[in-house]
Amino acid sequence: MNGDRARFEQTVLPHLDAAYNLARWLTRNDHDADDVLQEAMLRAYRHFAGLRGEARPWLLAVVRNACWSWLQANRPADVEPLDDGIADDSLPGPEAALARTLDRRLLNEAIAALPVQFREVLVLRELEDLSYRDIARVAGIPIGTVMSRLARARRLLAESLSVAAAPRLRVHK
């Protein structure tokens, strides 16, 4: 029993920041991320015996599911199914070139404004550096869907941050 606890502390707790970062991006506020993560960590401990393979994607899957349960109960509009059956690997067009100096606040707001299905793959890919295969496992979706959602996330993000989307910065003609 004590061995289990020690093993949990050694293998799972080092990924607490990653777990919190995901919960914080999915719930979009500190307080709820806190609640959801406490719940998720208890769940992780209870199911720790079932861990096979790497701890990080496993923990992130537990946290992701806890977040989705929370969203379904508290933000049902956020988790309505997306119509992403159509493969969409379109690229940001030339009009979506990023502004040269990027405002961090705007970037964070733009990520937060993405539909949660796109936001989670983006956060898992860019901030947690997970492979497509691990993202598929964490989010419970096929790899093809990981790729199309990531493509959509990047395109939406590039468009909302582009020079064209920042009229305040545009020079009058």
């Binding site: 920041d17 777990a19 919190y20 970062n21 500190d30 961090r104 860019e126």
Partner: peptide
């Protein structure tokens, strides 16, 4: 540039 939220 995106915020990385560390566990409190």
């Amino acid at each position: 540039q995106a915020e990385y939220f560390r566990a409190p």
